[in-house]
Amino acid sequence: MAKERVLITGAAGFLGSHLCDRFIAEGFYVIGMDNLITGSLKNIEHLFGRDDFEFYHHDVSKFVHVPGELKYILHFASPASPIDYLKIPIQTLKVGSLGTHNLLGLAKAKKARMLIASTSEVYGDPLVHPQTEDYYGNVNPIGPRGVYDEAKRFQEAMTMAYHTYHGLETRIVRIFNTYGPRMRLNDGRVLPAFIGQALRGEDLTVFGDGSQTRSFCYVDDLIEGIYRLLKSDYAYPVNVGNPDEITIGEFAEEIIKLTGTDQKVVYKPLPKDDPMQRQPDITRAREILGWEPKVSRAEGLKITYDYFRSLSKEELYTKEHNTFEGYARK
């Protein structure tokens, strides 16, 4: 009996590569697609040579054709870190708009169910805490983060339009800060930035006074939530993240303790539109999906730290984040 086929865009990225692993483990034939503008083949090289995986090097902002049947499409192609979307703002907007449109059209043609990766950034710098799916957000469309925030907001709107007008089976996951192996060490996000600085013996940089909060979800928990949402009958957005909130200042101290280093914490001005609070309300995920995170931050950080320690010196000392010093870290 032929395996059901799933298309995963952004397959060579952090989350996309973990999704490829999960769907192969679930018995699917996986088609990975990525233009490698931010993804890395290193994340999926262990899958090459398998008879249940193939890879398309393609930009989904251009017409997408995949021969044969598709059961599911998961759209995870998008720059997701400030380093990336500040460097390639037009591509970020195009993958959220043109790319989403192309894939929704493919899903319609194939009669496939499509799940899109949205983000907590649709809430902007929230005036409601914690953030529920019913909150419309506080987003600056022309600020430095607007290219990412508005691309994701448009992506949700386009997806719901296809669901209501064409009757397409769609799912929307709003992803909160996630971490784990295969993150890029120097992509500008706070967790890999802190660990990278600690491993290089540098002081840890905190933007603002460190009182802003984040909530970190381990990647295995996130992938489980995404898989359950895809299989569910719920078409509206669902927050998937860990509600265990911590200030950035406290988190820096956790990283110093974890790495056994004696660096100081240095403070720099807070970037424009940087969210002061980020914590998911996961009531909907608990009630509809029967999901909640299982991996504690201490456990997940140890696994992630061990992964980063295994990187080469070349990877460790490629300090891309210094190129955009002063911009927001998610």
Score class of each variant (00 low, 15 high):
205 T>W: 09
268 K>S: 15
132 T>P: 00
122 V>T: 10
149 D>P: 03
274 D>W: 10
117 A>N: 12
4 E>M: 06
154 F>P: 00
71 K>F: 01
107 A>L: 03
231 K>P: 01
156 E>P: 04
299 E>Y: 02
263 Q>I: 01
233 D>T: 04
325 E>T: 02
97 S>C: 12
175 I>Y: 09
314 E>W: 07
306 D>F: 07
73 I>P: 01
67 P>A: 09
121 E>L: 04
161 A>V: 06
305 Y>W: 08
315 E>D: 09
153 R>Y: 06
250 E>R: 08
2 A>D: 14
201 G>K: 09
322 N>C: 00
47 L>V: 03
252 A>L: 07
72 Y>M: 00
324 F>A: 01
58 H>L: 13
263 Q>W: 05
124 G>V: 11
264 K>M: 08
253 E>Y: 04
35 N>V: 05
289 L>R: 03
76 F>Q: 09
323 T>K: 11
319 K>Q: 05
137 G>K: 14
9 T>L: 08
82 P>Q: 02
164 T>K: 06
106 L>R: 04
273 D>K: 06
312 S>T: 13
317 Y>L: 05
325 E>V: 01
259 T>V: 08
153 R>A: 03
97 S>M: 15
51 D>W: 07
242 N>F: 10
282 I>E: 08
2 A>L: 11
329 R>D: 01
118 S>M: 07
208 G>A: 06
182 R>H: 06
214 R>C: 00
223 I>D: 02
204 L>Q: 05
201 G>P: 05
193 A>D: 10
142 I>G: 07
172 I>M: 02
203 D>P: 12
5 R>D: 06
283 T>H: 09
313 K>G: 05
21 D>M: 12
216 F>K: 03
38 T>V: 15
318 T>W: 02
16 G>F: 12
313 K>H: 08
87 K>P: 00
136 Y>S: 14
132 T>H: 11
287 E>K: 05
211 S>N: 12
248 I>F: 15
151 A>N: 05
309 R>S: 13
315 E>Q: 12
21 D>W: 11
63 F>S: 14
72 Y>S: 01
180 G>T: 11
60 V>S: 05
188 G>M: 07
42 K>I: 03
112 A>E: 03
319 K>T: 14
98 L>Y: 10
157 A>C: 04
45 E>L: 00
296 S>P: 02
329 R>S: 05
321 H>R: 09
294 K>S: 07
67 P>R: 03
141 P>E: 14
95 V>Y: 08
247 T>V: 11
279 Q>H: 06
23 F>C: 07
224 E>Y: 02
176 F>T: 01
305 Y>P: 05
323 T>A: 08
12 A>R: 09
175 I>E: 09
217 C>V: 13
258 L>K: 09
39 G>Y: 05
245 E>A: 15
307 Y>T: 04
130 P>C: 10
97 S>W: 11
66 V>M: 07
310 S>P: 15
314 E>F: 10
235 A>W: 11
161 A>P: 00
209 D>M: 04
290 G>Y: 02
319 K>I: 15
10 G>P: 06
310 S>A: 15
330 K>L: 12
133 E>T: 09
26 E>S: 14
144 P>Q: 10
127 L>W: 09
219 V>C: 06
75 H>T: 10
272 K>R: 14
317 Y>P: 00
90 I>G: 00
322 N>A: 10
156 E>T: 04
301 L>W: 01
108 K>N: 00
52 D>L: 10
101 H>Q: 13
36 L>E: 07
297 R>M: 12
